[in-house]
Structure formats: structure tokens, C-alpha cells
Design a protein around this nucleic acid. Sequence first.
DNA 1: GCAAAAGTGTTGTCCGTACACCCATGA
DNA 2: TCATGGGTGTACGGACAACACTTTTGC
Lengths: 248, 248
Amino acid sequence: MPPERISGYNPADFPPFAVTVDVVVLTVTPEGLGTVLIRRGKAPYAGAYALPGGFVLPDEDLADAAARELREETGVRLRPAELHQIGAFGAPDRDPRMRVVSVAYMAAVPDLPTPRGGSDAASAELCTLDPGRPSRRYLNLAFDHHEILDAAVRHLARLVEETPEATRFCPRTFTLADLRHVYEAIWGTELDPANFRKRVLRSEGFVEPVGEKRLPSPGLGRLAETYRRGPARELVPPLRRPGTYFHE
Amino acid sequence: MPPERISGYNPADFPPFAVTVDVVVLTVTPEGLGTVLIRRGKAPYAGAYALPGGFVLPDEDLADAAARELREETGVRLRPAELHQIGAFGAPDRDPRMRVVSVAYMAAVPDLPTPRGGSDAASAELCTLDPGRPSRRYLNLAFDHHEILDAAVRHLARLVEETPEATRFCPRTFTLADLRHVYEAIWGTELDPANFRKRVLRSEGFVEPVGEKRLPSPGLGRLAETYRRGPARELVPPLRRPGTYFHE
DNA sequence: GCAAAAGTGTTGTCCGTACACCCATGA
DNA sequence: TCATGGGTGTACGGACAACACTTTTGC
């Protein structure tokens, strides 16, 4: 920017913008990929679902604001570095009331506690998504939150290809079937158990065997080895979705 | 956000933020990957290089603002959809003068005209980067523009893996060696000409033969086939960097 | 025994890499 | 004839996918 244009630093020198953060809380439940939505009580978009979020404080980092809103509205405590920025959404008419630029974050949360929190506790709901279909609908989302949610799911789908972050959705120790169900929920595809196993175990530092065995389903099937997350911070080579390697 | 907190819409109800856009103009020259930087004349960071950018207008879309700043400061005209958002940068102390949240965009520009433009015409320079080294330095960049530039280069490196966007850096018709030099500049690696050729031609719709031949270097080597960009909008499978497939 | 799910092994096929080799051009 | 760079071909190994097969559990 030309420095002379902002040399005064009078509030009148720049257009009045509000800056908010919206947080897409993604979790994996037995029903599939889920997210926390809040039902709006007032216009605009009264009765519609919306992402949790709120204003950034004057001296607050963007990621800190996202972590604070996440904590206040869902009770989930994550370090700001554990939140992934999705991008900025700032179309002039995205909020009919005033000009708002919102910075969206994605939070990968296991074992989501029953949504509780400050102001909108009663209206927070855990909704199940359908990541397999390209034309999925998110029941009446307010503002441009449909677009933000889409971008967050795409971000997560790519994140778990390249990092061990999918283990966040598993308990401290887990079976490879548990981990496979996480990938299936996020990618919306079915994976071959045998090939999934080989690819995960070949990826050095992804998971480590614990040494115990566990019954996969209650009273069904052979005992499965249990694992915990390994020290790797990224997967080389990535664990890509089927069909990303070869033609057809 | 709790609607009741912003029901008034008085400017005093929300913290005063300035919202700007910064544009990372990336181009490929015979010297390698290059970007347009502006030398700052005033404090803070007087004498340092900075990315072109400026305020978002009150009723302006973020991408429109980036396209406008790009046009005003470098004379390059791109549609807003051709700009890629890198993310939002809004640490509280990133600008010592006031609270600024900047939304960064990346523009892939061929044949960059000698940087000219409005206010800072004389001080705009085309600087060559070194994408191969992880510890590359960007000579004294102002604010957090080092971080933004890094993110933009990473974004471009991934973009050309999955889309035919690398052809933007080539003339309308080009040889495969031209295209290969673009990838080498962006990825900072050398590529095997024979294998590069096979992978590009196998990717359906990436390039189309024109039917003419051209001398690759002035007075050197065999005549090379020329191509133009094909209709594909994404590369399936992606044209990945070497080493992304196998171990070691 | 049966069903269910873990885990192992095999095979076919495709791809990436390296490298040799030939072709076409201008000097 | 030589150097330069485009284009073709081949050999090897790695990885993925599909699927058969064995193992281990509860009922």
C-alpha cells in the first residue's frame, strides 16, 4: 500500500470493517463426519444453522480468537496452533447488516462433549455431514457458511493425506480398523482393510504398536492389535485417497 | 457469533480493524521464479521491500480489491477469479501503527511488464527468488511479508501439481522444454526431460500439439514440437514433484 | 460349526526412475 | 563432423488394487 495513504491513522481514514472468526468443528462419530452448528434465533437467517464464531478482540491474534470462541461455545480447549486456517470470507453482502470479514478456522476434535457453553448453549447441535456426495446439503446454513463448511471439509480431507492428524479422532490407543473408519468418514469412501493396513504400517512413525489386543466389535471378530500415534509429523509419502495415483 | 452482540451496528460496538489485501505477483523469468516488490520510503520499515497491496474499499469484494491493487501498482489486468487467496494474516503487532488484517492473494503472471503504476511506480522491482532452498532469504521484507511470500510460493508449487496453471507462465504456444523450465523454477528442482515429456503428454487435456516446430535455443539443438494449453482444468492424476511417490 | 473381522500372502498392472539411443539442426 | 537438445525406447523396481486364504474370537 502507498504509505502516504495511511500516514494519519485516524479511524476515518480507513473503511469501517468488522473482523470475526468462524470455527468449523469437525469430529468423527459412528454416524460419520460431524460438525457443531448453532441455530440462530434472530434475523437475519432466523431459524437457520450457523457456524460458531464471533468478533476478534482488539489485541487478539486471529487463531487465539478462534480458540477462545471454540472454548466458549463448545467447551473444547485446543491450542491456537492446533487450529487450521481455512481462509478469509469477505464478500460485501455476506452479512446484510454491515461489512464483515470473517477468518475461518477448522478444528479437529475427538470425543466432542455434548455441546455446552456460554450464550448459545441450548441451541448448539452436532450435525452429521455426508462428505461422499458433491451435492450435499447443509440444511439451511446462514450467511456463506455453506461455502466455509465445504472448504473446511476439503481442507481436512487433504490434511489427513499428508499428516497423522486423523489419529486425533481416535482414542489414545486404537485399532487400525478404528483409524480406517476415520479415513472412510472423512473421505466418504470405503477402503480395503488389507491394503489400508499395509500402507499405514509402511509409513514410518505414523503409528506404534502398543502390544495389547482388543476385540474390534463387542463380541465379534478376531482380536485386533492396538496402536498409538507415532512421532511422525507428516506422512512421506502421503496416504492418498484411492484413485489419486493412477488413471481411472 | 451471538447475534445480540452486534444488533446495534454502531461503529463503537466492534473493534476498529483495517482490512487490506496484499498481492504476491509471481512470474517465471530466465533467471527463475520472480516476484514484484516495492521499496518502502517511510517508516516503519523504511528502505525495506514490501508486497504491493492496499485497503479494501467499503463495498468491494476481497478478490476485486486484490485485482485492483494489482492493476494499479503493476499494470497487470487479471480477473478476480484468476487470483488465488493465500490466507489472512492478522497478528496484533504485524503493523506497529494500528490493527490491520491483511488478506493475501497470489497472482501468476507471465511476461511481466516493466513494473509501472500509480503512486510507487519508480520503486517497484522484479526480484528473483530461490525456491529450492528452505532457508532462502528475502532481503529485508517489511511486516510479515516474508511469511506471506513463503506461503504464496508453497501455494503455487502445489497448484501447478494439480492444475495446468503452469502454462500461464508460457507464451500462447510453447515447447515442452519451456513448460519444463517453468516447473523447474517453481519447484526448485531439475526434471528429467524424457520423463517429464511422457507424464505431460499422458495427462489428457493438459497440452495440445500445434503442428509447428521451433528451434529451442537460438541456433542449437533439434526442432521441437510446439503445444498450446488444452481444455483440462485439473490434472488427473496430478503431476507431482519427484520424490512424492516412493520412500527415500 | 458358523459368522465376523483381523491379519497374511499373492498376483497383475501401472507408474516412476534412470539411462541408453537415435534424430535433427546449426556451426 | 561435432555439440546441443528433442524425442523414443527399454529395464528395473516400487506401489496399488483385488482377492484368496488363514487365524481368532463370540455365539
